[in-house]
Design a protein around this nucleic acid. Structure first.
Lengths: 115, 115
DNA sequence: ATCACGTGTAATATAATTATTACATGTGAT
DNA sequence: ATCACATGTAATAATTATATTACACGTGAT
């Protein structure tokens, strides 16, 4: 298993696209960097990353879709609901060969194009 | 030199973001797959990928910005100007450590946020 | 001179992403 | 009951990305 994310090997090109998409924004890479030090709950993560919570949710959603992060809800000792995010394990090797292999399953549909 | 593209090692996070961005669309991965078999000129590439030429230019621009492809103009024997695109050499290893390292240089600016 | 086949790009439309604002709910402590 | 601090999300605005259409120009062959 060479390329994987969340203990699943990647095979469909859509999986790769969603990973690349997830990694294509500075805020999301920053989130990964912070979670690499350990899990965090949403409000604290928002402060660390320096974005609003609604915006953070949007970015987390993309990371979760790509399965680069996962979340769990917990109730702290003081009774507050807290949602923790943590990094999934992942490793990708990107080169001519891996992308070439991927592209074989891609078919671009009939755009009625000319020119 | 672990992560590189076009014989240059990647270091700024913006370089990575533009590579991820370039790889986040099926058409662009398809383009890479086709160029992996050998160079192609623009019009033929458009037919192979099955998109219009103006659209192809847009996608090629992103790939070129990320330095995953390069182009050269030539005059064919029959006198026609032809623009050839070919793949740059590149190899990236993406995991918790490489992204974590990257994220250190990312600072998210003052969004005046609350909540 | 018209056609087939290259080149390039400007203007526009459509769609998706990113960001903001304004809410609502619940708990424990003052 | 009000505050501080968690949760969540709907509605909107602003910005980018994607896609289309319509041009223009050049060469060689019919």
């Amino acid at each position: 298993m060479k390329n994987f994310v969340g203990n699943l090997s990647l095979n469909k090109y859509e999986d790769y696209v969603s990973v690349f998409d997830a990694l294509s924004h500075p805020v999301r890479i920053k989130i990964i960097g912070i979670l690499a030090e350990g899990r965090q709950y949403v409000s604290e993560l928002a402060r660390l990353v320096n974005v609003s919570r609604p915006l953070l949710y949007m970015h987390l959603k993309k990371l979760e879709t790509a399965r680069l992060v996962k979340s769990t809800m917990e109730i702290s000792e003081n009774g507050k609901a807290m949602k923790f995010y943590s990094l999934e394990d992942f490793g990708l090797e990107i080169n001519k060969d891996t992308l070439s292999e991927l592209s074989k399953s891609i078919v671009i549909e009939n755009p009625e194009n000319g020119s």
